[in-house]
Structures are given as C-alpha cells and as structure tokens.
C-alpha cells in the first residue's frame, strides 16, 4: 500500500497522480458539507451569489460533526464521515463549480461522481466510518463556521487539520471506483452463497 502525505491547496495535477488503493493523509484546510449545504451552495451559484468562503483546493468532507461550544469558540469533539451516496445527486456539479479535488466520505459514490472525478481531476477517499474520535484528534482548529441556521451537523465548518487520515483512495481520476469493483465481485459471490443455501 503506497502512503502519501498531502498539503492543501490540492490541485488537479496532485489528484491525477493518485490511484485507488493508495493511502493518504492530508494537512491543511478542510470544510464539511452535507445535504443542505450542498444544495444551498449550488443555489447560491445559480443565483450568482458569492459563497461566504472560497472552496478552491480545500478538502471536502462529508461530515456532520459533534461540536462543543467553549470560550466563545467551537471545538470539534468527534467527526467521522457520513454516507456519501446521499450527495451523489449534487457532487458532479459541485466538483465542477467549486474546483474540488479531494472528497472524503464513506460508502462510496455513483457513476455521475466517478465521471466528474475523471473529467475535472478529483479523487474520492474513504475515511473509516465511525472513527470520529480519531478524526477529531487531527482537527486542530475551527477557522470559521457558516450557515449555522442549517443546524450544527449541516452547517459549513471550515477546519484546520493535521495528518487527517488514513484515507483510502476509492475513486480516482482514471474512471476506477473501488466500491463498484467490490460490488461487482459481491454479486458474483452471491451465486456461490446461494448454492450453499
């Protein structure tokens, strides 16, 4: 397993060097966005409105963090990934519009996102679902939070991370999707399982 340590901003060129099965750790700027934030960001874009912060080159994390308010600021306590498939309907346009090159989530994404990863040079990485304490430990700072009216899990959290990972590259820029490849294998395995029933 090849291991890379990357720093943001992560460019299209950086993303195109990686392939499924590579393991990466990221240091730098990351932001969280779930369903409502994806929807609103794209609505803002369609209406010609500026986002509160530039997203270019930052890592997009599918996550609704567990947050504690302290000393007038916020601290991220636990922050594992949420199911990425719910965001598949937004992601191709999101990648294109906001110049995203690294996405982190769990459970994988579909053909539309895979095609956008290929076209615009982005990778999708799996962070182990449920490993929220470990993720929280590598989140060093909450730089800003926007759209808190969406609720804490759905808001845009801008974070500073240090060696965030391990992240498994699961969709690369070469049209390979590890989840799709495993799913195909699983369907083949089903006939052997049925034969034993």
């Amino acid at each position: 397993m090849v291991e890379y340590h990357l720093r943001t901003p992560i460019s299209e060129k950086d993303a195109r060097k990686l392939k499924i099965g590579d393991m990466i750790y990221v240091t730098g700027d990351m932001f969280t966005a779930r369903d409502s934030a994806h929807r609103r960001a794209l609505e803002y874009h369609d209406a010609g409105k500026e986002l509160p912060k530039d997203l270019t080159g930052k890592v997009l994390f599918h996550c609704g963090p567990l947050v504690k308010k302290m000393n007038g600021g916020y601290r991220i306590i636990s922050a594992g990934p949420t199911t990425s498939m719910r965001l598949d309907m937004f992601e191709d346009k999101f990648i294109e519009t906001f110049h995203i090159h690294v996405i982190v989530g769990k459970g994988g994404m579909g053909p539309r996102t895979t095609a956008a990863c290929n076209k615009f040079g982005a990778i999708y990485c799996a962070f182990t679902g449920g490993a929220g304490a470990l993720a929280g430990k590598t989140i060093k700072l909450v730089k800003a939070v926007e759209w808190l009216d969406l609720g804490i899990p759905e808001a845009l959290w801008f974070l500073k991370v240090e060696d965030f990972g391990p992240l498994m590259v699961a969709i690369d820029t070469h049209n390979r999707n590890l989840y799709a490849e495993i799913a195909k294998q699983v369907v083949e395995n089903k006939q052997y399982i049925y034969a034993r029933i």
């Binding site: 609704g64 567990l66 636990s78 922050a79 449920g130 490993a131 929220g132 304490a133 929280g136 430990k137």
Partner: peptide
C-alpha cells in the same frame, strides 16, 4: 479509534 475514545472519554462516533 475505539481505544482512543475510551482513553480520552471522547464519543467514538460523531
């Protein structure tokens, strides 16, 4: 992750 959660009293999953 679950060892870190137990040792630091941190919720293992968000």
């Amino acid at each position: 992750n679950f060892e870190l959660g137990a040792n630091t009293n941190t919720p293992i999953c968000q």
